[in-house]
Design a protein around this nucleic acid. Structure first.
Length: 430
RNA sequence: GUGGGCGUAGCUCAGUUGGCAGAGCGCUAGGUUGUGGCCCUAGUGGUCGUGGGUUCAAGUCCCAUCGCUCACCCCA
């Protein structure tokens, strides 16, 4: 999404925030090409996904644009398996492409901010708790307080359906159940009917979906259903372990809850699944989702590489919240001080700017030969907070006029004083 | 893939039964000799998406095409 300067600065700040949290949790950056051989990206794609992939031919190569960051990760991990250390924790913030009809908040090109933890052969369940801890920290630092990470385990759903004798239709049933929030029980029931479920089975699913309460209470209630199925029990145990991990990691209970209805559409999730919604903007939908998968790279290597991860849809998040007025773009420039030379000789202005920059203050010099009024107008329109005026008098006395654009106040200061003041201010802001 | 809507000035859009191409914002200049925002005045600005057709005459009607957009499916 192309943006105007003020918005792009805001967007980049969000991206930086996400990156810094990811790195704080020990994830290492990865930046694979947006283009891959089509056969790589299409290896396990089918149906809807395949239709959404941009493909083209260049010479003898069939190429395609990545439509997520997980498939390239799978290729990367199998290709560099020998040089990576496991569990491999990587983050990737990059653009992905989907050839679908664009609509509100959905684009052909958008940013995903992924983290994944990949194990070699096995991966401890505690990582499933680490992921929501990262989500919690990220959204908190993005300035949100009211958001909910919804957590489920597909084995719970799968085990339940298996116990009811519908193992073969498990994926379809999950898809229907996943819509509960959106379309309500009656419509879900209709879909289940279409799938051939009997009344008694639907009643069981209904009572299962009705379970609510605190995470640990829900785990007890799920066990109390008395469902005789190994996967189901394993799923509930896994959920409980994740909940205990979250508590240890200090994720407050107000920011997550177990929700046995969520399944995520993608079929490759096999265990824990996550979905995050902003409580005050439910219409935006899930702003961050993901889960656990048994085998990341089965199409590229014989090694079994289980993983768990999530993706933040940054472009949608930014777009929807800007639209809702939650984000207010500020200045249209990173410049803190705009130097305005008043004399034909710009030497003093350029020298002053260099010193300010050396002190770490983002500084710009207005170099066009325009009237003073126009220079001020420029300063105003880019939203720079301060201008530094260098006329003959200022240059001679080496005391420059620093003007605060917001208040209109202007004072005469030596360069060293200005630097002191901004550096003090910088440490306060941080 | 299915079904709507829209393409006119840099931007947002108006344009009546087919009859001189418009407004606001922006930009430029001035009101203010080294002081921005607010205000006032003047000026600048167009292959009407593209190609074809109907007509004395098309921004307006018809066909095609490209682009954008909204909803559905699916998903971030």
């Amino acid at each position: 999404m192309e943006l105007l300067p003020a918005e792009q600065l805001l967007f980049n700040r969000m991206k930086d925030t996400i990156r810094s949290v990811y790195e704080r949790f020990g994830f290492v950056p990865l930046d694979t090409p947006v283009m891959e051989l089509a056969e790589v990206l299409l290896a396990k794609a089918g149906g809807e996904t395949e239709k959404q992939i941009y493909q083209f031919t260049k010479g003898d190569n069939e190429l395609a644009l990545r439509f997520d960051l997980t498939v390239p990760l799978a290729r990367y991990v199998s290709e560099h398996f020998g040089q990576l250390t496991f569990p491999y924790r990587r983050y990737h913030i990059g653009k992905v492409y989907r050839g679908e009809r664009p609509q509100k908040g959905r684009f052909r090109e958008f940013y995903q901010c992924d983290i994944d933890i990949i194990g070699d052969g096995e991966l401890s369940l505690i990582h499933d708790a680490e992921i929501p801890a990262v989500i919690y920290t990220t959204f908190t630092e993005l300035g949100f307080e009211r958001f909910t990470i919804r957590i489920n385990n597909r084995q719970v759903l799968g085990g339940l359906f298996e116990s009811l004798g519908f193992a073969d239709r498990s994926a379809d049933i999950m898809r229907a159940v996943d819509k509960l929030d959106k379309i309500g029980w009656e419509n879900v029931r209709e879909e289940l009917q279409t799938l051939g479920l009997a009344e008694s089975a639907m009643d069981t699913i209904r009572s299962f979906l009705d379970i609510q309460g605190s995470p640990l209470r829900m785990c007890r209630a799920l066990r109390a259903l008395g469902i005789e199925n190994e996967r189901f029990r394993a799923g509930v145990d896994a959920l409980e372990e994740v909940v205990r991990g979250l508590t240890a990691l200090g994720v407050p209970e107000k920011n997550y809850r177990l929700d046995v209805a969520i399944a995520r559409g993608l079929d490759y999730y096999t265990g824990t699944v996550y979905e995050t919604i902003l409580d005050d903007h439910p219409g935006v939908g899930s702003v961050c989702s993901g889960g656990r998968y048994d085998n990341l790279a089965e199409f590229y290597t014989n090694r079994r590489l289980p993983g768990v991860g999530i993706s933040i849809g940054l472009t949608r998040l930014f777009y929807q919240l800007t639209e809702a007025g939650v984000f207010r773009p500020g200045a249209a420039t990173p410049t803190r001080i705009l130097v305005l030379p008043m004399t034909d000789d710009r030497t003093a202005a350029l020298a002053a700017a260099s010193q300010l920059r050396a002190a770490g203050i983002p500084t710009e010099v207005y170099l066009e030969g325009a009237k003073f009024k126009k220079k001020m107008k420029y300063a105003n329109s880019i939203g720079v907070p301060f201008v530094l005026i260098l006329g003959e008098e200022e240059i001679r006395t080496e005391r420059y006029s620093l003007k605060n654009m917001a208040t209109g106040e202007q004072e005469s200061l030596a360069l060293a004083e200005i630097i002191d003041r901004f550096q003090a201010g910088a440490s306060v802001r941080a």
